[in-house]
């Protein structure tokens, strides 16, 4: 447990730009520009948040809906560059934020394994080699040559999880996905994540399930309106958060 922290978030902020009467077309925009009606308002989804996650730690983020939890996760996943502040992530990242983002319903399970894995930054030829093992783990071997538009949502979630966790990452970002699939799958997926943590993977975990948070997290951050209200031991932060609701 040494070396620099895999995840460092320093005073990071993210602003969405809301324009009142947003001009959807260039024509409209030009007209409004002439009329001097172009106004923008910044909505700070995340504001001045700082924390770091050491190796092998499970860092959990809790807070009400719209607190900026998912935005913060996407910032760590590099999808949203911070408007201000700095984010450093050392090592590979498996984002389990929106599992199966990039799945194409017309392509087969096999083709989607290769495509999704490649979108996650892995090599296509490596993914081709791994596809059978991934399908087996997701219990989808029999459906590998079927377009995934005929998959059930549980099957899709299993496939997404299996691809995302096929390679042991240094940082795992989890957004409530532990709750996908049936009970048996939930057990195996939880086991797989626990193995990774034991192996030194750091986890950033967003959840509404305070029971799970208290059970698995090493530290918890309470986020409200984009601001970190409290960071500390799970029991204390969860208690304070529950007291506020």
């Amino acid at each position: 447990m040494s070396g620099p922290n895999p995840v460092e978030v320093q005073d990071a902020s993210l602003a969405y730009r809301l324009s009142h009467n947003r001009a959807g077309t260039l024509k409209e925009f030009a007209i409004r520009l002439v009329k001097r009606q172009v106004q923008y308002e910044r909505l700070w989804a995340v504001k001045g948040v700082s924390f770091s996650v050491p190796r092998g730690e499970v860092f959990s983020i809790i807070g009400p809906n719209g607190a900026g939890k998912s935005t913060l996760m996407k910032m760590i996943a590099r999808v949203l560059p911070p408007t201000a502040g700095r984010i450093v992530v050392r090592g590979s990242v498996s984002p389990m934020i929106e599992l199966g983002a990039g799945f194409n319903p017309e392509l087969t399970g096999y083709e989607n394994i290769v495509l999704y894995g490649t979108l996650l930054g892995r090599d296509p030829s490596y993914m081709r080699g791994r596809a059978p093992a991934i399908a087996e783990w997701a219990e989808l071997t029999d459906f590998l040559d079927v377009p995934i538009r005929s998959y059930s949502s549980g099957m899709l979630a299993r496939l997404g999880f299996a691809v995302a966790t096929d390679v042991k990452p240094e940082v795992l970002l989890v957004d409530e996905v532990l709750s996908v699939g049936d009970e048996a799958f939930q057990r195996t997926s939880k086991l797989r994540i626990e193995e990774m943590i034991a192996d030194g993977t750091s986890v950033v975990f967003v959840s509404h399930n305070l029971g799970t948070v208290k059970e698995v997290a090493s530290r918890v951050m309470w986020l409200d309106h984009g601001v970190a209200k409290m960071v500390g031991k799970p029991a204390e932060v969860v208690k304070a958060y529950q007291g506020s609701v």
């Binding site: 502040g85 050392r90 090592g91 990242v93 490596y126």
Partner: peptide
Amino acid sequence: MTTVSPNYYDSDQARRPLVSELANLWGY
């Protein structure tokens, strides 16, 4: 060989667009 996504991300580096973008593209 497993090539996992670029192994180091620093949001400050994204401010040197051309160099980091092109190096990044090669990885993809």
